[in-house]
Nucleic acid binder design. Sequence first.
DNA 1: TGTACATCAGTGAACGCGCGTTCACTGATGTAC
DNA 2: TGTACATCAGTGAACGCGCGTTCACTGATGTAC
Lengths: 227, 227
Amino acid sequence: MAAGAASPRERYRSQVRAEIKARAWDQIATAGASGLSLNAIAKELGMSGPALYRYFGGRDDLITELVRDAYRSLADTFGAAADAGTGLSGLARAMRHWALEDPQRYFLVYGTPVPGYRAPDDTTATAREIMATLLDVCAAEAPGSAEADGPGGAGTAPADALEAHLADHRDWAGDHPAPPHVLRRALAYWTRLHGVLSLELAGHFTGMGFDPEVLFSAECEGLTRRG
Amino acid sequence: MAAGAASPRERYRSQVRAEIKARAWDQIATAGASGLSLNAIAKELGMSGPALYRYFGGRDDLITELVRDAYRSLADTFGAAADAGTGLSGLARAMRHWALEDPQRYFLVYGTPVPGYRAPDDTTATAREIMATLLDVCAAEAPGSAEADGPGGAGTAPADALEAHLADHRDWAGDHPAPPHVLRRALAYWTRLHGVLSLELAGHFTGMGFDPEVLFSAECEGLTRRG
DNA sequence: TGTACATCAGTGAACGCGCGTTCACTGATGTAC
DNA sequence: TGTACATCAGTGAACGCGCGTTCACTGATGTAC
């Protein structure tokens, strides 16, 4: 932190900004993102509606900022989990924890897209950072060759087709040196986690009788060990 | 159809009801479920706002009806795919087709839950019907014993733990005679499909460079064949 | 076939509401000399 | 240290808007005799 000391005004400003965001998150948790209201936030903060325009360009700007923060916090969570050296399943558990901690934050990123809205451009970079972390951990953990994969892994025609396809379509991996079978595993792992999480968070397992965590664990390990 | 012939009035009524719903779907596709407006629907239909109250109790009733229809149409799609005898991957492809046909319909069922709203009770029954169909097809296709599963299948500790857990927590399967390893495979299959679909439909693969369909196919076959 | 009545689709005015946002203004806080 | 000025947080009134919903009413369609 080499930046000059923030002036009192700047400190105050960012404090209020943070408070506004906190209230915004509360509201999203209560009424969903579409129920977010500037006036309601202002009221909860004990100030008048128009005051918020000192801090955000408007409702859309505020939401954009929340989306950005949500992406950022997942990327950080991922980064920390990778540094902890707990491997792929550590990454998965970190993600599940992050999601359960605030389901609406998860949904703001991975939930139903609102038709008109476009996420800010820099989230793409953050999304790739997340994938890069996943690829790092995946590469470190992967067996040296594809044939170590089992059912659903290399050796089945569609999995081979996918690996071949990914070898030629790896924009999302940037310049990561991961070989195709790692790309495939990372991608499959990623989607499987989201499969369990999105259903769990949306409540589609409630009333089914089983514990989502057990299912999650099984999906966690499914791609990393073999039977 | 043994019911008595519908009176002209009844015919007209259900026609208008259908038209209202159709417009509602259009609107959801355009602005998301939260942007659905009775007045706007009425305007598009060339009638006044209050007229809709002849057909639905109000906005919430209309949405509830749409949710019910969405569940029903997926259950029917599943049923037809099962009858077609195209196996598990036929089921999966039918589901993907159903989802791509109208992403907002998918999201109305599996997307971000709106915190206050509760789905109508009878959707639970439809949801179980869907799982029952999945179990049927899964059971027909499954190898006779668990040991035929590969990596991520039986033989790994978490997968065994899941099977054991499911053997004791099978409310969702009703009285379906499927053995534990079929329960596990059905559930894993189900969540994996949703993993790819929810990310694809929400647009998280756009700009990544690969074709979601290839990934989907790989996940389709992953649990059904072995390498 | 014709008349009397009931049903019911649809209208138009009105209700209260909360929303995002603008604008001119006040008053406190900081800065420059 | 004190004064003059600039910055800027926050207010309150007002704007137009679209929303869901109610209500009394009109007029057409169906039914019963």
